[in-house]
Amino acid sequence: MGGIGKTTLAKIIFNQICPRFGKDCSFLDDIREMTKTKGLVERQKKLLSDISYSGRAHKIDNADEGIRAIRKTIRNKKVLIVLDDVDEGNQIKKLIRVKSLCPGSRILITTRDKSVLKVRGFKYEILSYEMEGLSEENALQLFSRHAFNDNSPPTNYYTLSKGIVSIASGLPLALEAIGSLLFGLQERTIWEEMLEKLRETPNGDVLGKLKISYDALETDQQQIFLDIACFCVGQMKIDPHYMWKDCGFKAEYAIHVLVNRCMIKVLDNNNFWMHDQFRDLGRAIAKKERTRLCDGDDPICELRSMEVKYG
């Protein structure tokens, strides 16, 4: 499932073994989202740019041209490539469509759906590993770091913390978000209410657990969160800042709150980043409220739907 740490683990493995491959390494992140918004050609260009380290990648105009260029580039190289968040087998074929990879090459694929690994015509052996949730001990430690800035909860919060951790089912993203939400809050009634809200969320409903963090935001913070989820992931922080300021939002404080609650990150290049589960949550809320059109939405269909509903 999303938020269990697939990408985090893939990055650790990538960084550990990358030195064995020299410069012939590429980490292609967020393929599912990038394919929807910019097309697979952008991921092909990044792969070629990383491994061929030349300007030829910018000359790729379509996916078929990209496949041919990739085949020529990696067939004689021992490469390390990570395909992160794949949701269609066709994406694998268009990025690694090589009849004979160089011996010693390694391809790591993360996905929420292991059926996409059954790629027709792909002769290589695929060793699957199913991610497991954190152990109770590690889950409690991760939660405590975010809720108490310590490796374990204080004695008087131990039972409540154990209850919250148990319901979070070892999901790192939920543990970080809920722990960050409770950080600095000492009233036991608030903790008890949080535990009750989690109990009301169906088992396995990740977005439902994350929505608790959204519901706890102030109105302008919610609006900025939805804007980032729908439009601003990967965009520079400064670009929408003036819009939020004109709307009367306390943008800097809202961003500070969202970062502290692990709902977004501002990267070193000042771009917004958001875990795909929080991004999916924001887009689901925006779609339900009909307040924003996100990437992939058909504006004509949405307008016709609204006309039928309100006409």
Rank of each mutant, 00 (worst) to 15 (best):
N156E: 09
R43A: 15
G66I: 00
D276W: 02
N156I: 00
G184K: 13
R71P: 00
R120M: 07
S54N: 14
M274P: 08
I224T: 07
N203A: 13
M274I: 05
G296N: 05
N270W: 02
A174P: 05
G282C: 12
S115M: 08
R112F: 00
F225D: 05
C18E: 03
N271K: 14
C232E: 06
T201G: 09
D113W: 04
I300V: 14
I31F: 01
N62H: 07
S105A: 10
K36P: 03
L80K: 10
S152C: 12
I74S: 10
V119G: 09
G179E: 03
E302D: 15
T8F: 04
K93A: 12
I164E: 11
S305T: 03
I212S: 12
K237I: 05
I12C: 12
H256Y: 09
K197M: 06
I228Q: 09
E218P: 11
R106I: 01
I12G: 06
D295Q: 12
C294R: 08
I190Y: 09
L171V: 13
E130C: 13
L303Y: 01
R32T: 00
T111I: 04
A69Y: 00
R290K: 09
E187F: 00
S105T: 05
S135Y: 02
K197N: 11
D298Y: 01
V116Q: 12
M131Y: 03
I126Q: 12
M131S: 13
K265R: 07
P240F: 05
L258Y: 04
K99V: 01
K36L: 10
L134N: 09
F148M: 10
P154V: 04
N62D: 12
N203W: 01
I74M: 09
A57D: 06
P103K: 11
F183M: 13
D61V: 08
T155Q: 15
Q221R: 08
R304V: 01
T219Y: 05
F278L: 14
D64M: 10
D30I: 08
I67R: 15
G282F: 00
N90W: 02
E307S: 15
S105L: 05
T8G: 13
C247P: 07
C294D: 04
G89M: 07
I70Q: 07
D239M: 11
G3S: 12
